[in-house]
Design a protein around this nucleic acid. Structure first.
Length: 199
DNA sequence: TAAAAGATCCCCT
DNA sequence: GGGGATCTTTTAT
């Protein structure tokens, strides 16, 4: 059994215990982890995240469970996928105990493997840097969509998270992007030296 | 029943 | 730097 540290070894699969903590804690710890898709043919290192909690007015879970945000209240390690702006999907890692609505939004990642497939899905004219440098771009590159809402990231689903090697650059915290409420908390974290962050 | 806002992205100027 | 695309969810009447 893997402890709340999420496994010490590179390549260790995400464990629910790792996510069963406050989203702001998990968010920072997820930097450097790898999102895998297509059974490992697609890989990208997470370089930018944001945290959302129930007490947070910017969070989908702020007003309690609904059909849309139900996965957010599911077991830790669940994938919460939502549709926004009439055309985009965004992916989150559910955090906290089962029944509590917390999650970490995956905002940007650095492609490690399967760049050709990512580029094909993203459309022509996209540089490697632009494949996953935004929450909806990441979902488009990995083909994350509504059908994956509520699936697990801990193994056995279409997507999984695995611990990457250390040696990350400096981490910067700041206000979250694209929200009108909840701007007071610096719950966006990113690797400031990495060119794959969204901004 | 209607209206507005939304955890975004892309293209144009 | 600014605006349009596009539609679901939520809130107001």
């Amino acid at each position: 059994m893997v402890g709340a540290d999420g496994g010490q070894r590179v390549g260790a699969l995400l464990d629910p215990g790792f996510c069963q903590r406050p989203a702001p804690e998990v968010a920072q710890d997820l930097l450097g982890w790898e999102l895998w898709g297509e059974r490992g043919a697609l890989r990208a290192r997470i370089v930018e995240v944001e945290a959302y909690t129930e007490s947070d007015p910017a969070s989908h879970s702020h007003r309690g469970p609904t059909p849309r945000n139900g996965a957010m209240f599911g077991p830790p390690g669940t994938l919460y996928v939502y549709f926004v702006y009439g055309m985009h999907w965004c992916a989150n890692v559910v955090c906290g105990p089962h029944g509590v609505g917390e999650a970490v939004l995956l905002r940007a990642a650095a492609p490690l493997r399967g760049q050709a497939l990512m580029a094909a899905r993203r459309g022509s004219g996209r540089s490697e840097q632009e494949l996953c440098n935004g929450p909806a771009k990441l979902c488009q590159a990995f083909a994350v969509a509504g059908e994956h809402d509520g699936s697990t990231l801990c193994g056995g689903g279409d997507f999984e998270l695995r611990r990457g090697p250390g040696g990350l650059g400096p981490v910067t915290a700041g206000p979250r992007v694209g929200i009108s409420q909840g701007r007071g908390v610096p719950w966006r974290w990113y690797l400031s030296d990495d060119p794959h962050v969204s901004r």
